[in-house]
Amino acid sequence: MNKILKILLPSVLGLLLFVGLWALVSQTSPQLPGPIKTWDSAVQLFSDPFYRKGPNDQGIGWNILASLQRVGIGFGMAAAIGIPLGFMIGRFDFLNRMTAPIISLLRPVSPLAWLPIGLLVFKAANPAAIWVIFISSIWPMIINTAAGVGRIPQDYMNVAKVLNLSEWKIFTKILFPAVLPHMITGIRLSIGVAWLVIVAAEMLTGGVGIGFWVWDEWNNLNVEHIIIAIFVVGIVGLLLEQMLVLLAKRFSYE
């Protein structure tokens, strides 16, 4: 009991301090709603998360799910292409040197810069948003998977050589398990990026989604809802991250 208290106490204290500061700031600036007002609004909002009153007025639950769906599709496609590509880049030096300049050139590009290209090619907002998620979340997976392949200890490759294993056995018994932790790191970073980007992308594309919802509430000047949205985005991001941390733990061998 005492132990749990010791672990929890600092976090609880930190949160209380944060809420206290927020309350203080909201006292001095009348436009910013305080914690209590926001809480009341959140209780009301979450009492009916799944209502539909037309395309531009749906419950917070639908908005979150819509964003998660976009992230899921964009990220899923990025993983399906990025991870195999990362393996090949790591395994074959020629391919590595061939792709290196393209990757270094495109990786630092701000995700939203890709949005007009998406709109142009797909002629619709939703696929364009998915495209932005795809292109911005693919890089960490390519780079980390390739780095993981490059960092396989020579000992393991010597085992493969001495046993004269087939390429398939090398892949399933050595390459894949050795790279898995790096791959999961890449996936974690990618999910993080995807979730960061979706809010911004949806602000621009509209429709249903947590990003659009923030923008819509800004137009309604409903600041409580904007603050709630910030917390929702944070909590969902945290949950995604924790899921992958658990996954990483499952596949660590030390």
Binding site: N158, V159, K173, I174, P177, A178, Y253, E254
Partner: peptide
């Protein structure tokens, strides 16, 4: 090998 080189997984 000197350092056993077992596959940890």
């Amino acid at each position: 090998f000197q350092n056993h080189s077992l596959l940890p997984w």
